[in-house]
Design a binder for these strands. Structure first.
Lengths: 222, 222
DNA sequence: TAGGCAATGCGTATAAATACCTAGCTTGGG
DNA sequence: CCCAAGCTAGGTATTTATACGCATTGCCTA
């Protein structure tokens, strides 16, 4: 094909054309693909959930503000890393953005180098998050194949109980537990107890911490 | 005893007496214990690592600033949740604070209710972090009991390999592997393969993400 | 130098898991 | 009404894991 799909996409959302234009030029100079939008609605329409990327988002915009878009994305389960950009924002907005998971908050004017560094960082975060979610989704789809009874048995097994114990607790025969266990291992595509436990643990983290999203950082570095 | 030890401690660090005083009074009115310090150095001296709590920290102070203290605490591995308080701070400082793991950043004047809410939140975070670290420390101390050979064997076992496979890969006898396995289970105080795997997984997370620290949040809520 | 510990190995025995097979019962859908 | 699917259970055989005890070698330390 002629127009090849980029491996990552930077979205720029700002109501001012001049800002979109200069940001686009800056980022495109590094060879990365950019898509610009003048409003939150346009972005939601043009967002490609299948491509890793990050979002450069203006805080103040007519209509849906940047912070409102952030909340909207959270509610929709869209977890693209957001770098806020603002000319004159206050501490409360900044704090709110960060507490809602923003990767960074840059005040204009900022250095080109800093922005590009943050963009790179954000994309790396998104890629890592996507990989993690991909693995979790695969496990979830396997878990969906299990029957209710198999779920019960699996919980016991992962909890460290032997077939005999499971049989006693559930009030069924040893053979029945073995049969369930066998189909569990097959459906989960686990060749070991170890693998099964790893899968359940990974999927369990998904359920326990739905929004840990970003932040594989250690320190400030800014 | 007469002076009972509080279950949590709020540290207030600000160079202005008036600020320390009003914050202390506000927090003490909820029945929580407070310790005030006029400088970063004083705080470092009076900090009790064994008691859960949080830190209300002024950004600008003569000598070591709030942000510098935050970095200092990070470097020393002290992970007390920090709520920054500032009269006139900029976005860059706010962003830096959050990126370094701050729980919140409040601009004066702020409502008493908001502060108290954040303090409660921060303490909950610290307690959760401490519980997690406690568990990990316990596992680490057990791992330290293992010999080098036992570590190798454990890695294989947790990786899902049977004793026979481990024996073949390591070039030793089946019986030797069994002996190692037995002492591993004993030293790790695991009664199951499942428990052993859980422990190693938990400890492994510790090594992989040393600074995920705070942030069990979902959204802004402020 | 003696004792302790780690690593290695063997024997024996029991317990548990796995891999095959078959089969009755129930429930929901074509 | 029958078939598919799920839950149940038994038989048999093999493979693994566990739990005892015992012995040798090498290294480090009291």
């Amino acid at each position: 094909m002629i127009t090849k799909k980029p491996d990552s996409l930077i979205y720029v959302v700002d109501d001012e054309f001049a800002v979109r234009d200069s940001l686009s030029l800056l980022i495109e100079s590094t060879g990365q693909a950019v898509r610009s939008f003048a409003s939150a609605e346009e972005f939601l329409d043009g967002y490609d959930p299948d491509c890793p990327g990050c979002l450069l988002l203006d805080v103040r915009m007519p209509g849906v503000s940047g912070l409102e878009l952030q909340e909207l994305l959270l509610n929709r389960g869209i977890s693209i890393p957001i770098i806020f950009i603002s000319g004159h924002a206050g501490i409360p907005d900044t704090a709110k953005a960060f507490r809602a998971g923003a990767v960074d908050f840059l005040e204009k004017p900022f250095s080109d180098g800093l922005l590009l560094k943050r963009v790179e960082e954000a994309i790396a975060i998104d890629i890592a998050n996507r990989e993690q979610r991909e693995g979790q989704d695969k496990i979830q789809s396997r878990l969906a194949l299990l029957t209710a009874r198999e779920h019960e048995v699996m919980a016991q097994i992962v909890g460290g109980h032997s077939n005999k114990e499971v049989a006693r607790v559930m009030g069924i025969s040893n053979r029945t537990v073995e049969a369930h266990r066998s189909s569990i291992m097959e459906k989960m595509q686990a060749s070991n107890l170890a693998e099964l436990i790893m899968m359940v643990t990974q999927a369990g983290i998904l359920e326990a911490k739905p929004n840990s999203g970003h932040y594989p950082f250690s320190g400030g570095g800014g």
